[in-house]
Structures are given as C-alpha cells and as structure tokens.
Amino acid sequence: MSILVVLLSLAAGAYALAVIERWAVHGHLSLTGPAWAALALMGRESLLARKSDRLFFELGPVLLLVAGLMAVAVIPLAPGLIITDLATGALFLNAALAYVLVALIMAGWGPNGAYAMIAGWRFLGQFIAYAMLIVMPITAVAMRAESLSTVEIVASQAQLWNVLYQPMGFVLFVVAAMGLAWLPPLDLPDATGELAGGVEAEYTGVRLAVLRLARMVIILALAGATVTFYLGGWLGPWLPAWAWSAIKILAVAAAMLSVGRYMPRIREARYLALSWKLGISLALANIFVVGVIALVVPI
C-alpha cells in the first residue's frame, strides 16, 4: 500500500518538477505544458544512432530511472509511509545513486556521438568532485542520529533541524546533490551551449522521455534526501506529516532547479579544485564540530 502511495506521489512530484523546470529553462509557466510535451515525445520517432552501442544506449536511461527509484525507496514521506525502512538507509541511498554515474557514462558512450561521449566522461570527472561531499555530510548526520535509518534520522531532528545544527553540512550536501543531478550551474554533462545537449543529445522520442523522467526522479530523490537529512523530514506544526514532506521536497527541488538560471556554468577544473580543496576540508571540519557538539550538548 505504502509503495503505491509513494509511487503516486512520486509521479505527482515529477510532474510538478517538470512544470518548474519548463519555467526555469524556457520561461513559460504552464500547468499542462509537460503533459503535452510528454505525449508529443511519445509520438516522435525514437531514433537509433548509427553504429551505436545498442546495449548501453538502451540501458542508460533505464538504469538511471532504476537508480532514482531505488533511492526514493528509503525516503520517508510520513511516519510509516516509506517503501522500505532499511537500517542502512542513508548508506543505501548513496549506493543507489552511485549508479547515476554508470548510467550516464553508458548513455554517453552508447549513441556513438562525440558530444555525448565527452559529456559522459565529463560526468566521470564531476563524480570525483561530488562523491565525497555527498558521503561526508551524511556521516555527520548519522553521527547525530546514531543511526543510518532515514526514519531515525528524521526523528533525531525533533528538537532542532539539522539545517541549524550543522548548516555547513547542509550547504555542502545541497551543492553536491546538485552536482549529482547535474543541475545548473553544475550541468557539465548536458551543457547546451557547450555540448548541444551532451548526454541527451542523441536521444529522441520515448527514450528521451524515459531519460527526462529518470532525471526528475533523481532530483526528487535528492530533494527528499535533503529534507530527510537536514530539514526535519515530515516534522512540522499544524499540517499533516505528508503535506510537510511534499511542501519541503518541492521547495528544495524548485530551488535546486532554478538557482542555476542566475549564474554561468562552472568550469570543470575549478569545480574539482573547489570541491577537493575547500569542500572536503569543510566537510571534515563539519564532522569534527558535529562530533564535539554531540558529545558536549546532547540535543
């Protein structure tokens, strides 16, 4: 039952995100736009590039979708409303999203086009930038909750949300999540002005629809993770728990989607340099500070 509810809310969330993305990218705010666009995509030819690596080409978008759905499985939307409350939920989320890298490299290599291929390899470089910065802030979150279960993590924030308890970790996690979901200004693998769509460039029709849906699911999973780890999950006054989850997740996702509109894309070399030199130092400092606070003032 809860699986069905989560999947339905996921579908609704993906649709809402598509509306927001159209507004952020093309400047049109239209509630029915994504529905028409999806229907139109279904009717278009789904071309197979010549000399493509068929297996990789077909599997890339599907694997991306599967990775996103697996990540969603450990996001609690309300008490009891979670597909599976794993004892290692936070770790599982991270493991599921590791397949995003594999899927993008497959999707980049598969279609036999230079733009897509470069884009796929670019994402490998990007992985090196964001990977540590996803894990290390989660470590600090788990330290406070004394559990990797996402439900426990939400419960641990009853007194004080983690965004206030460990703000540095919050910032690092959100930036890393945007890198993982290749959102502007960290959209190196589908940079329109540099690679004409990059990984997406050779996908058309149904395959493109799957790829786009998968991306929306990943963004939702990451927004859900941000809310779970830092914004108190379903916690909140007056409204029912599920409503708080929905509001928070959509707000985080909308912010992640639209912030890139106001700045140029980062350069890959600078992104890597900043992530390692600054990001990892800050993440270590965050773990240390959280450790000290957890020992001294137990809240």
Binding site: A24, V25, D187, R261, P264
Partner: peptide, 13 residues
C-alpha cells in the same frame, strides 16, 4: 549569446 552558451539563462532571456 554568452548567457546561452554558459547556461546563464536569466541573462540570455
């Protein structure tokens, strides 16, 4: 054009 190229979409628009 620079906005389009660099993904600075607000500037492009």
């Amino acid at each position: 054009e620079f906005g389009t190229q660099s993904g600075f979409l607000w500037l492009a628009a």
